[in-house]
């Protein structure tokens, strides 16, 4: 998950800076920054390769423990030839997509209901407060006993892991709508429904995305763990299977794929966020009040 995280943090803070005169660095500069960030990563792999090869020569430790990046690539290629990689990636992608989307939609829906109806909030609030802090992974064995080892318990676990943070952020978003915005909408003749769809929801949307970003990492953990326990496919399954046969390089292949898959999802989420929150990014034109135009 390494590639996703630092880039995320960076673009998040960029989107939030609301300085009126703040402009983004020009495109050239930004790609230069991207190249700069590549250098440490490349160095990391070069050192790894060097250590691995040196170990092959000098036998500091069992060479099986740390295969070289090139060896991992070759093994990955071999696995891909057998069709195992495609099959695992598809299985994992389906699970995380269905689970994550279900969890997010359920959380937003629940947040809407809880913020619209006092009764719903007084009943559901304490229950979620009680269940929320339980680490979701602790529930997996129970889910497996209840629902077997099919797809359902895995997706349920992913959805539940996604649900709790998104719900918390959604509720927080609805609570922190600036009151003057609601007042101004009211004095413009907005009805309760308008207040909700045109003020509360757009105002809470950035928060909902923070929740989704937070839970993406958690739901990936749930995906992998649920595939390690009682699955016959998926990236997590490659890892346990490789452990059973002590095929270290296969483990590394799976780990790299998980990292790539996470980055892809984080990237898609970012794109969606940029699309929906256009108003948060600083515009190119910085307006100055020059009096009558």
């Amino acid at each position: 998950m390494k590639p996703g995280t630092p880039a995320d943090a960076l673009s998040l803070s960029e989107g939030r800076s609301r300085t009126r005169t703040g402009t983004r660095p020009p495109k050239g500069l930004r790609s230069a920054g991207f190249l700069m960030s590549l250098i440490p990563v490349v160095t990391f792999f070069l050192i790894w390769e060097a250590v691995s090869r040196a170990n092959g020569l000098f036998h500091w430790f069992n060479p099986l423990f740390l295969p070289a990046p090139t060896a991992i690539l070759l093994d990955g290629w071999a696995l891909a030839q057998k069709g195992l990689i495609i099959q695992s990636v598809v299985a994992s992608t389906l699970r995380i997509t269905v689970g994550f989307l279900t969890g997010c939609s359920a959380a937003v829906l629940c947040g809407i209901l809880m913020s619209r109806s006092r009764t719903v909030e007084t009943w559901l609030g304490p229950i979620f407060n009680m269940l929320g802090p339980i680490p979701a992974l602790a529930l997996l064995p129970i889910f497996i006993i209840w629902f077997g080892i099919g797809e359902f318990p895995k997706i349920l676990l992913i959805a539940w892991t996604t649900f709790i943070p998104v719900l918390a952020y959604t509720l927080d978003g609805f609570k922190s709508v600036p009151p003057t915005l609601i007042r101004s909408a009211l004095s413009l003749g907005a009805s309760g429904r308008h207040i909700f769809t045109r003020v509360m929801l757009p105002s809470a949307l950035p928060n909902i995305f923070v929740g989704a970003n937070v839970s993406l990492g958690l739901s990936f953990s749930s995906l992998i763990v649920s595939e390690m326990m009682g699955a016959k496919s998926g990236l997590g399954y490659i890892i346990v299977d490789a452990r059973n046969y002590f095929k270290m390089s296969n483990m590394f292949v799976a780990i790299v794929l998980i990292g790539l898959e996470f980055s892809l999802f984080a990237f898609l989420l970012k794109i969606l966020e940029k699309r929906l929150l256009v108003w948060r990014t600083n515009g190119v034109r910085t307006a100055v009040d020059t009096g009558k135009e």
Binding site: S184, S187, H194, R198, W279
Partner: peptide, 30 residues
Amino acid sequence: PDKSRGVVFQDHALFPWYTVLQNVEFGPSV
């Protein structure tokens, strides 16, 4: 509150997610 009494706020209270035009359209459109 009622639409017959328009309010201009000290901190302008424009909707940040709407463009200038959408902000001005808010009243007539609701």
